[in-house]
Amino acid sequence: MELLPQSREALDEYVTPSVDDVEGLLRVIEGWAVRTVPECVALSVTLLDDDLTFTLVDTDAGAERPVDPAGDTAPRPDADFALDERGWAEMARERAFAGIASTVCLPVVEEGRAVLNIDLYASTAHAFHDRIDGLVAALGAWQAGAVTNADLGFETLRRAEEAPERLRMQRLVDVAVGLVAARVGVTTDAAAGLLTQAADRAGVSESQAATVARVLLA
């Protein structure tokens, strides 16, 4: 499977003490998934604390090429198009949509709290039948929380595409929190609370409030 370009961009910028090697985690999950479910054509991992999703897509194995209204198979994008980030993502989306026939979402729980969601996508309707127990055991997931066929529209792909922008906004918020903490003389946790309250009162997003705070305090 190939890492979505936006996931590569986000991974290059992502730093967290909670997961040392996100790409390594993705590749381990990929290995377990394709061994247990050979029809698996895509997977996404969502870090719930950070609200970030990273996605791997197989644009060939098990995925059908889109069909045009006349019934002919759509032409394969040329090499230049496929190497373009936006073109690659569009191609991945089209082929994945055409190839996804079943899905399963497996939460991973630590100390009674869900920390990860693992979403797997397969090219056949019954790919996960009688295989969820094996996946749960291999991935350390919570079996009672497993949900099948809830994301046939591949919503996690959209969230993965948004990950780089989410990280940029979070850095902006972090800068604003630091500025507020230094100016007002409070802890960063208290400054974050002040920023959130200000955003709520103003009816704007936290990232917009961060921009305003940084400009005012500069």
Rank of each mutant, 00 (worst) to 15 (best):
Leu3Pro: 01
Asp50Asn: 11
Ala210Asn: 02
Ser102Lys: 02
Glu64Phe: 05
Leu52Thr: 10
Arg86Pro: 01
Ala163Phe: 13
Val19Ile: 15
Ala210Ile: 07
Thr211Asn: 07
Cys105Gly: 03
Glu90Pro: 02
Glu206Ala: 07
Leu157Ser: 04
Asp130Tyr: 13
Asp68Tyr: 04
Ser123Val: 07
His126Met: 04
Leu172Glu: 13
Ala176Phe: 02
Leu3Asp: 06
Leu56His: 08
Ala137Lys: 04
Ala98Trp: 03
Ala182Pro: 00
Gly31Ser: 14
Val57Trp: 01
Leu120Gln: 02
Arg27Ala: 05
Val175Asp: 13
Ala150Met: 00
Arg86Trp: 10
Pro69Tyr: 11
Arg201Leu: 13
Tyr121Arg: 00
Trp88Gly: 03
Asp130Met: 04
Ala160Ser: 14
Gly24Tyr: 06
Leu4Met: 14
Gln6Ala: 15
Asp174Phe: 09
Ser7Ile: 09
Thr103Trp: 00
Arg76Lys: 10
Arg158Trp: 11
Arg166Asp: 07
Asp51Gln: 08
Ala182Ser: 15
Gln197Pro: 02
Gly71Gln: 04
Glu165Tyr: 12
Leu11Gly: 11
Asp133Asn: 11
Gly203Asn: 09
Ile118Gly: 02
Thr188Asp: 10
Gly112Asn: 10
Val45Ile: 15
Leu106Thr: 03
Pro5Phe: 12
Pro38Phe: 06
Ala127Gln: 00
Gly193Trp: 04
Val41Trp: 00
Thr196Val: 05
Glu90Phe: 14
Leu25Met: 15
Arg168Glu: 15
Arg201Asn: 08
Ala199Pro: 00
Leu47Val: 10
Asp119Cys: 05
Arg159Ser: 09
Glu64Pro: 00
Leu194Pro: 03
Gly145Leu: 04
Leu120Arg: 08
Thr156Arg: 10
Asp50Ser: 13
Ala209Tyr: 03
Ala82Lys: 09
Arg113Met: 05
Val45Leu: 12
Ala96Tyr: 03
Gly99Ile: 15
Ala42Cys: 08
Gly62Trp: 02
Thr73Gln: 12
His126Ile: 05
Glu9His: 10
Pro66Asn: 04
Leu157Cys: 04
Glu94Pro: 01
Pro107Glu: 08
Ile100Ser: 02
Asp151His: 03
Ala98Glu: 14
Asp20Arg: 10
Leu195Trp: 01
Arg201Gly: 06
Leu25Trp: 01
Leu157Ile: 07
Glu90Gln: 13
Phe128Val: 01
Met169Glu: 15
Ala10Asn: 09
Thr156Trp: 02
Thr124Glu: 07
Val147Lys: 04
Val57Gly: 01
Ala146Met: 05
Ser18His: 12
Ala137Thr: 06
Val41Ile: 15
Ala82Phe: 11
Leu116Glu: 07
Thr59Glu: 14
